[in-house]
Every structure is written in structure tokens, then in C-alpha cells.
């Protein structure tokens, strides 16, 4: 099933609603093998939800998510877990297991799914921790880490099983400029050196532009623009320009729907 012409992940005509709120409507996305694909969009457009749909933590109301041409909705639990072993996922807040040390957190997937000796596990874990610059923090507990450090440990954990597909949920939020630069380069390097595919969900336009091969901009439950970062930057679409250049005024309202400002301040809306 490693037909390189076929897209790695394909999302077809996907609908998803949470309660009464329609989050996606007729969503179509293609994620190519060996590329860094960025999914961008304003807050609240359901970017994280999309990742959960891709990994079947959620099931779409309509439409399909195909991985290697197989609809993941048809997999049974064993097959699904088999598929998930090919994924590495970095959660927004790290999602480290708080009762395990940094070392054990990174070792967790290895201990769960392999029969490697302790020596070998130690070797692998220390290598991965070294890559994110936290080899010295191996014996610390997650509660002792700063937010940025926790994210880097989580990244080491996401790549410890050498996955084919790495998924990053907002990887650049809350990192200091140094870690940010390291992580950005790491994402790109891992993608090219190990021949994996990466999916980045983010609203950090600048950082994403430097690593992504292909970007999708989602708004209002649909893909409103796609292409390379340069194409998006030079687009004529107002909405895309507003997002890419961080302008307050444009098709996407900065203000959540509200009654007239002056009227409300004067208390007239209460009548």
C-alpha cells in the first residue's frame, strides 16, 4: 500500500457538527506524502477537531477520511491501533502523563508496544530527548517543567516510535524564540531526513510559512484557500490577505456578534 502517487491522507466531503454547531461542511483536503502540510485558520474554526477526525478520535457525520486509500471509519479497534502506531501526535498542551517522569513518558510507547531491552530503550529515549535539548531533564516530573519544555518532551515522545506521520497541534504557541527556532528546524529536518510526512495545525503564519510545503486555510467550516505559503501571501482574496497579514478589519470579524456598542454602554439595550 505504498503507492506513492496516491495522497497519504485524503478528506472527502466531510461534515461534522458538534451539537447544533456545524463545524465542517463539505471539507476536502489532500495531504501528500513526504510534505509538510499546514492547516491554518482563525481560532475556533475547529483545527484541533480536524486532527481528531483524521486520527478517528472523532467520527465524521458524513464523508470519509482515507489513509492510504482506506476509509478509517471501517477499521476495527485492532486495526485502528495498528494505524495509530504509524502516527505520532503532539498535543497542544503536551498531554504528558503526569504520574510518570520525563524519561518514562518518552519511553511509554516503547514499553507498550515493543519488547526492547531496557538498555536499548534508554538509548533511544536519551537520543530523542537530546534532539529536543532536554536530555538533562530526563529525571524530572512533568509538573516541574515549563510549558515550552513540556511541549518539547511531548515532541520527543511523539517521535520515539519513528512514526510515518507526525501531527503537530499548535506546536509554536508559548515557545521562547530560541526553542521556536530549534523546533521549526527540527520539524523540517525530521520531515526531510526521515522521509516522514508532517501535518501542522497552527495560526502562527510566520513560522508556518517557513516550514510548510503546502497550506490550507480553513474558515467557516471550509477550505477557503490552499497552496504554497508564497501563493497564499500573494493572493488577491481579501479573507486570505486579512489572515496572512494579521489585519483586524476584513471579511473575518474580530468582534464576536454583539449588540451595538454605544447602545449597550448607555444601557439602552436593557429596555
Amino acid at each position: 500500500m505504498t503507492d506513492t502517487d496516491k495522497p497519504l491522507i485524503e478528506i472527502r466531503d466531510l461534515d461534522y457538527a458538534r451539537g447544533r454547531k456545524q463545524i465542517f461542511k463539505d471539507l476536502n483536503i489532500c495531504i501528500d506524502r513526504g510534505h509538510v502540510t499546514a492547516i491554518m485558520g482563525p481560532s475556533g474554526t475547529g483545527k484541533t477537531t480536524l486532527l481528531r477526525l483524521i486520527t478517528r478520535q472523532l467520527v465524521p457525520d458524513r464523508g470519509h477520511v482515507l489513509v492510504d486509500g482506506v476509509d478509517i471509519a471501517t477499521l476495527n479497534e485492532r486495526e485502528l491501533f495498528g494505524l495509530r502506531k504509524r502516527f505520532g501526535m503532539l498535543f497542544q498542551n503536551g498531554a504528558l502523563l503526569t504520574d510518570l517522569s520525563v524519561f518514562e513518558n518518552v519511553a511509554f510507547p516503547l514499553r507498550e508496544h515493543t519488547k526492547l531491552t531496557n538498555r536499548l530503550i534508554r538509548h533511544i529515549v536519551l537520543t530523542k530527548l537530546h534532539a529536543v535539548g532536554l536530555r538533562g531533564a530526563a529525571d524530572m516530573m512533568p509538573s516541574e517543567l515549563s510549558g515550552g519544555m513540556a511541549r518539547r518532551v511531548a515532541l520527543a515522545r511523539a517521535m520515539v516510535m519513528d512514526p510515518e506521520i507526525l501531527i503537530y497541534d499548535e506546536p509554536f504557541v508559548g515557545l521562547d524564540p530560541i526553542s521556536m527556532g530549534v523546533i521549526v528546524r527540527l520539524v523540517r529536518r525530521m520531515n526531510d531526513a526521515l522521509g516522514i510526512s508532517s501535518i501542522i495545525v497552527s495560526h502562527d503564519v510566520q513560522e508556518v510559512s517557513t516550514v510548510a510545503d503546502q497550506s490550507y486555510l480553513i474558515s467557516g467550516g471550509k477550505v477557503v484557500a490552499s497552496g504554497s505559503p508564497d501563493e497564499l501571501h500573494n493572493t488577491s482574496s481579501e479573507l486570505v490577505r486579512q489572515f496572512m497579514h494579521g489585519m483586524a478589519d476584513g471579511p473575518v470579524a474580530f468582534h464576536y456578534a454583539a449588540p451595538n456598542y454605544a447602545e449597550q454602554l448607555l444601557g439602552r439595550d436593557a429596555d
Binding site: 478520535q57 491501533f81 495509530r84 498531554a95 502523563l97 507498550e112 515522545r157
Partner: peptide, 18 residues
């Protein structure tokens, strides 16, 4: 409850652990 709130349970599912 806190494991759920901090995505630890989702993370386990993503690491193919039930």
C-alpha cells in the same frame, strides 16, 4: 477527570494504548 482535561487519555489513545 484531570487526565481527561489535560488530554492524557487522548494521548494514550493516540499512542495506541487503551
Amino acid at each position: 477527570g484531570l487526565m481527561r482535561a489535560t488530554d492524557q487519555l487522548s494521548a494514550m489513545e493516540m499512542m495506541a494504548t487503551n
